[in-house]
Each structure stands twice: as C-alpha cells, then as structure tokens.
Amino acid sequence: MRDKWEIVIGLETHAQLNTRSKMFSGASTAFGAAPNTQACAVDIALPGVLPVANREAVAKAVRFGLAVNGSNAVNINRRSARSSPAKTISIPTFPRAIRSASTRRPS
C-alpha cells in the first residue's frame, strides 16, 4: 500500500528566542514567574502604548539566517489576527490582536 503513495511533509517551527526582553517591549522573558507579572503596558496593549523592536531578537534571527545560508533583510509587517471582513476572531491571549512579524526579504 505504501509504495503506491508518497507522503509530503513540510514543517513550521516556532522557536522562542532567548533574549532578555520581549519582542516589542522591555518586559522580562524569564520562565516561571507568577501569572501576569511579566506583562507590561505594551504587552497587554493598553491604549496609547507603542511597540519598540528588540534589536537583540533581530540579531539572533540574523544569526540563524547566516547559519542556514539564507538571504538577510528586515522588513516589519503587521499582521492582524482577524479572518474575513465579515467575521471577527479575536484571541484573548493576543492582546494587541495584531502580530507584528518581520519578514526578511532579500536585500
């Protein structure tokens, strides 16, 4: 049976970077703290707060790019965690409801 079929697999891996602080705020990333003690104003998306990109995270991502011999360029895109215009799917664990992703395109 198996010989008739070919299995095709792609993997998406999410790796938490071991930076001292978060991607867009200065809050600590240390594991094991009491709930909600390491979420600052930016992380909980209070009105008026702004994200600031973490250079250490970018540097680590660049290291990865160098290690696997990819091309390196950084562009920061904001992605909304919503689906189609007619429906709103918000996720409570996603305070800003937008996920800023940096997609690095060839420079």
Binding site: I9, G10, L11, T13, L17, T19, P35, D43, K60, A101
Partner: peptide, 19 residues
C-alpha cells in the same frame, strides 16, 4: 496568563521537502 505574550518567536518554515 500574559507573561508569555510578546516573547520573540522565530518562525521557520520549510519547503515540503520531507518524504
């Protein structure tokens, strides 16, 4: 618990090369 919210994540996507 929002402690983890905002931690940097590197998403690595492979081509569907595995068989």
């Amino acid at each position: 618990d929002l402690n983890r919210a905002g931690t940097p994540l590197l998403e690595i996507v492979s081509e569907p090369d595995m068989r």
